[in-house]
Design a protein around this nucleic acid. Structure first.
Lengths: 109, 109
DNA sequence: CTACTCAATGAGTATACGCTCATATACGGA
DNA sequence: TCCGTATATGAGCGTATACTCATTGAGTAG
């Protein structure tokens, strides 16, 4: 948000990126891949989502450049391609914790 | 995303936060407030959105704890309450620039 | 109190998107 | 080649949400 007059197309690009992250199940997939690459079946087992649903979310994440794909025989392995994801989530998490702490404190006394 | 088994409610909270940012016009409002607090009329003039629309987006942003409100007579002034917004956008922007640069390079040779 | 201004909100519409079922595609083994 | 397994995708449905118009609510000035 540095540039003072970001053109609409740029804003749309940025927003699109946030939108991809605005879905809990996609965050779940990202989180699951934090430990390392996994194939679709593993992700389905771990998240308990349907295979079709996992596939679609992985597609969304991959198109956004956040994940990478690697085929190995029948299996397709996905992995985190954008390490800045962790920084993003870190920022949001710490902010949420701060807000939660404030809420707790306001009840405390 | 540090914790390995973030509970679903936490993921929903994080996702909700990203979703709020996943709308170009809301980013526009945030961007407009970067210079300092502004009232609704000023934001309407600057963004060329309808007053109703601006009002709703401001509500969304305020409920998410990202903006603050201050009434002064008839006017209501909004301001950035969550400074980490800038870090978030910075991260996304720099990542997008990197991707764009890569795309340009791949056409270069 | 009346009239005016700024901001918020109820109602309605259009669109985006997450989900599922069924099917297609891709690949490996017999 | 024929079958089975892993993943992707078309079609359809239901919900969420961005937008607008009209109205209301809050505050000020006359």
């Amino acid at each position: 948000m540095n540039a003072n007059k970001l053109p609409p197309e740029a804003l749309e690009l940025i927003a699109a990126r946030f939108r991809v992250l605005g879905e809990p199940n996609r965050l779940r997939l990202i989180s699951a891949l934090e430990q390392g690459e996994k194939n679709v079946s593993e992700l389905v087992a771990e998240t308990e989502l349907t295979q079709a649903n996992v596939s679609r979310h992985l597609q969304t994440l991959t198109e956004a450049g956040m994940l990478g794909r690697r085929k190995e025989g029948l299996n397709v392995y996905y992995f985190i391609a954008d390490k800045s994801l962790f920084d993003l989530c870190e920022l949001v998490c710490s902010r949420l914790q701060k807000e939660l702490a404030a809420k707790v404190a306001s009840f405390g006394i």
